[in-house]
Design a protein around this nucleic acid. Structure first.
Lengths: 67, 67
DNA sequence: CTGTGACTGAGAGTCCGTC
DNA sequence: TGACGGACTCTCAGTCACA
């Protein structure tokens, strides 16, 4: 499976575990809501700085999002 | 420490452990030599697909390069 | 062998919407 | 709430000559 798809699935899974909407999560991560939507669907190829931002609200290491 | 710097240090450390030159490694990863040079010095902010390419020659999970 | 500045096309990332 | 589109700016991907 493509690494962007894996990233997207991990983000969605963790976000839903927290019970957050995409908008809630986007605000916590400091990222635009439409961008989160694209990422969860594997339609974007984010940079490592974005991966770091994505990891903050979940309190996990950035690398975990790529597993 | 900045995530780009961490990535760069990890790549350089692993590359030197293997005894490869930047050029050897770049060829194995399918990336340009000068681009590897930039990444090792933390001057670039690569996308996750690049991180995936970087991980291949080392036979590690892409996420490990971000630790 | 490696660092660096410069360059171009592609795409990252934001913001406005509608359904 | 989330999918999706359009339009926009700015940075990244990828390469080269040269130090």
């Amino acid at each position: 499976m493509d690494i962007c798809t894996r990233l997207g699935k991990n983000v969605r899974r963790l976000r839903e575990e927290k019970g957050w909407s995409q908008e809630d999560y986007a605000d916590r991560a400091g990222i635009h809501r439409t961008y989160v939507s694209d990422i969860e669907r594997g339609r974007r190829n984010p940079t490592v700085t974005v991966v770091e931002k994505l990891a903050v609200p979940f309190d996990v290491r950035p690398g975990e999002l790529l597993d």
